[in-house]
Design a protein around this nucleic acid. Structure first.
Lengths: 137, 137
DNA sequence: TCTAATATTAGAATAATTCTAAACTTAGAA
DNA sequence: TTCTAAGTTTAGAATTATTCTAATATTAGA
């Protein structure tokens, strides 16, 4: 489902986006863009610390903001939490929120048929759809 | 567009919802349920202070939470702000966010045609739709 | 090798909201 | 009417997510 990028590829993506590929940025970039699934800043810090990486909280926040500004990840907020979640899926897509676990799943646009009819004065730029429910396994 | 309730009606709605209709609750209730349009806690406090009401910040938060628990208002978060916004529209509905002004507009369900096709294991409970854009006047 | 630009950091600051525990108000029993 | 217990309001402290500050470290390129 998710792409895997080698360290070199992450480095290249950062450079191409005009971001200096430092050690911290490469590590966090690889985690957020490949391994993690909708992580929060807290998740990223916990992962880094578990990896015995010496990193400060500020760097985690700085790096996540940098990834967002570089267009490599997108921030989202969901109703069940007041933490920002980072999504590396750059395609337009929607979200399913499992209210039991708090887990967020990406939903491809193709799975939803949506037609918005509104007076012309509303100029639509984008659409956020969050489907809330439960997953039965 | 919005219903108007007299003080007595607000008092009745509070009582019927099992909430003691105190002065503070009636005042904030009337403001949130009739006069205001998607106010934040900050808006409610500012309004109360402008009215020369002696009220504490904690009471504003308590009362808003009470209104939500009583089912008289619903809390929402939007992507442009990290403040919770209170919505007295109890019908299911969607939102339009004017990215220029930050103003939120309610969109009736009838104005949107949405059809969600998903694997059966996703049990859908509710849907949050936020349309972001601009209003041309 | 040097220097200027850029990153990282610890810790302070900010902002929204909740908590705490004391003071106040109210509803209803006596 | 008075009393009491339950419920409400309050000021201020606490909490949580995030950003800021300003000092230190690293890096890119001359």
């Amino acid at each position: 489902m998710k792409k895997t990028y080698s360290t070199q590829e992450i480095e290249k993506r950062l450079s191409e986006a005009g971001v200096q590929p430092t050690l911290q940025r490469i590590a966090i970039g690889q985690y957020v863009l490949c391994d993690a699934d909708h992580p929060t800043a807290e998740d990223v810090l916990a992962w880094a610390e578990k990896k015995l990486m010496k990193i400060s909280q500020a760097t985690v926040y700085n790096t996540l903001n940098t990834l967002v500004e570089a267009g490599l990840a997108r921030p989202f907020r969901f109703p069940h939490s007041d933490k920002v979640v980072y999504d590396s899926n750059l395609m337009d897509h929607f979200h399913f929120l499992d209210e039991k676990s708090g887990q967020v799943y990406d939903i491809a646009m193709e799975d939803i048929e949506i037609k918005v009819e509104m007076p012309k004065k509303y100029k639509i730029k984008s659409l956020d759809v969050v489907i809330k429910g439960e997953i039965k396994n």
